[in-house]
Amino acid sequence: MASIYQRPIAFAVTAAVVVLVGTLVTVIIPLFMPSTQPVKEYVKPYTAIELEGRDIYIREGCNNCHTQTVRPIRTEVARYGDYSKPEEFAYDRPFLWGSKRTGPDLARIGGKYPDAWHYKHMNDPRSMFAKSNMPAYGWLAKRPLDTSLSYKKTKVLGYGYTEEEVRRQIEEYRRKVTSPDYPAKKIRDQITPPELRDRLTEMDAIVAYLQKIGRDYKETQKGVVQAAAVETFEEMKNPYEGMPEAIEQGREIFQEKCSACHGPDAKGSIGPNLTDDEWKYGWSDREVFISISNGRPNGMPAWGQILSEDDIWKVIAYIRSLKI
């Protein structure tokens, strides 16, 4: 009998079988294993708006520069937050873990900054971070959001919304971002052309999506991550108060980490003015330290895991120096 090197069909069939063994074991069988599709109550499907935002994220190829999975590595958890869990991606079709981090990972971006931060940043990244190389996406605010396929999309994905519900979600979100009380109103109005201010734009949708990523998991962790150690100090005093060298270092840190929201002169932008006498969460060393270290609601991130204790004190020393 002729060998398979003389019989092309037999050769091709053999090759297919050889190729299918590894495929079967590592890809096909796992499809039916619970470990690849864990379901947890806390993970919620995307709303119609978040889904539209996600589709814009895909359209613009954001996944070419941003990953969406935090690995269980100490420095990575310190930088981005808790490592990613398999159940978090139950509603992700496609998955968007990415393969390159030119910019930061976004798996825990939801709720990290206020909406206003995202509007400002998406519109012009370099107005907040001079060294950033992210493309500016201001044009998203100049395009009305197309929701004509929203219901069909949620249906294909099996999210279980009725058409009515999808319409309601869209209208509700429109009302939220166009309301005079919307915290990001000022910057939204600034970058949205007048004729679109009462309508939903692609920018609104992508901001909604960014605020959703990782948020379900974060909700379960509320109160757990508070840096307890800080609370135990009854009296805290800034060891760098009034020291010129420390103030200069504090200024450098402030320019890098804080100026994007509080303005380069600390007179406020997205975040409040730090040079006046209005201090919502208190003005003592201890209170300011806790504000910086643990963060505050409505957008102040917790810097305790990113900045060292010394660095936080230096920043406080710098802020204090502005008042005199």
Binding site: T36, F89, P94, F95, K152
Partner: peptide, 20 residues
């Protein structure tokens, strides 16, 4: 397919990553 220019993969999350 959702439209001529848009579709969603049949796999989700971890499985989608594995197949991809």
């Amino acid at each position: 397919p959702v439209s001529l220019t848009k579709s969603y993969t049949v796999y989700s999350g971890v499985n989608d990553a594995n197949i991809q």
